[in-house]
Write a protein that binds this DNA or RNA. Structure first.
Lengths: 153, 153
DNA sequence: CTCATTGCAAACGATTTGCATACCG
DNA sequence: CGGTATGCAAATCGTTTGCAATGAG
C-alpha cells in the first residue's frame, strides 16, 4: 500500500504494536492515521469523523473511534479531557512535552512548552515521593482575539 | 433552618446567586451543600450521592446532581475532568489556587500549591496575550505507596 | 482459509430533562 | 396561592460492543 506515516518514530510504534497484538494493516485505518497525524490538531472523534468522511467514502464512526483508541494505546496519540464532556486526541511528539492554553470562548487551543515548569514539577513530585509518568498543564481563559472582542463591547 | 454553610464567603456566593436567579432555599439542598463543603473531597456525583443517601433519606440522584451543578455555576465548586469519563466536583477555596498529583493506580488525589508555577503561568499567558481565568496543573503517576508496591513485585 | 477489520445498530454509562408532586415564602 | 425544588423515569450524549459481512496475509 502507498500510505506511509511520515514520522519514522510513529511508524515504528505502530508496527511494533501491531506485531505484538497480531493486528493486520488496513487501507482505511492507514488513511485515518495519515490524516490525523498530518493535521496535527486536537480532534474529538466526532470532529475527525466529520472531516474525514468525505475523504474516505463509506467510513464508519466506529472505525475512526477504534483507530484513535489504537493510537492512544500504542502511544502515538494521547487522550485529553479538556472542558466539556468528551475526549480529544492529539498526536504525541516524543521530542518534547507541551502544555495548553485553552480559550473558553472560541475553544482555540494554543500549545506551548516551558522548561521551567517541567523542572518545578519534578521538584514537587520529589517532595511527595511521587513517581511521575505524565502531567498536564491547562491554562483557561480568553485568547487575544476573544479578549479584544470582549473589551470592545 | 439550622443548616449553615460554615464559610462566610461561600454563603454569600450562594445567597447572591440565589437572589439573582430567583431561587428558593431548601432543606435538602442545604444539607447536600453542607456535607459537600465539610468533606472537602473530589466527589463524583455518584460518590456523593452514595455517601449522602443514608444521611438524607429519600434523596434523589438528580437533586445531588443539580446541587453540584449549581455550586459550580455560582463558583463555589469547580468541575474537574480527571482521567476517566466522569466529572468530579471540588470545593473552591478562594484564598489560594491549588493543583493536583493524581495516582493512576489507586486514584489518590494529593493537593499542593506552588507560587513559582503561578508566576510562570502568568508569564506564559502574557507572552500569548492570553487573558487567564483559571488553570489546572495535574501531575499523573504513582503515589509513594503504589510506587513501593510496584517495586516489590 | 483464517482471522482481523469494518459498518451498523444496539448497549452502555454518565449526564440531563419532563413531569407530577412536595415544599417554600 | 405562585413558583421553585424534588424524585422518578425516560431522554440524551459520548463512548463501546456484538455481529454479520468484508478484507488482508
Amino acid at each position: 500500500m502507498n500510505f506511509k506515516i511520515k514520522n519514522r518514530y510513529d511508524y515504528n510504534c505502530l508496527k511494533n504494536f501491531s506485531k505484538k497484538r497480531g493486528l493486520k494493516s488496513s487501507q482505511k485505518r492507514m488513511l485515518i492515521i495519515d490524516y490525523f497525524l498530518k493535521q496535527d490538531k486536537h480532534y474529538s472523534v466526532d470532529e475527525l469523523y466529520n472531516h474525514i468522511k468525505n475523504k474516505i467514502p463509506g467510513i464508519g464512526y466506529s472505525t475512526v473511534y477504534r483507530t484513535l483508541k489504537l493510537l492512544a494505546e500504542c502511544g502515538i496519540a494521547s487522550e485529553r479531557h479538556f472542558e466539556k464532556g468528551f475526549t480529544r486526541f492529539e498526536p504525541i511528539h516524543k521530542e518534547e512535552h507541551h502544555d495548553h492554553l485553552i480559550c473558553t470562548k472560541c475553544s482555540a487551543i494554543i500549545e506551548f512548552t516551558n522548561q521551567e515548569i517541567e523542572k518545578i514539577q519534578r521538584k514537587i513530585a520529589r517532595n511527595f515521593r511521587f513517581f511521575v509518568s505524565d502531567h498536564k498543564l491547562e491554562i483557561y481563559g480568553l485568547c487575544s482575539r476573544c479578549a479584544k472582542k470582549e473589551k470592545n463591547q
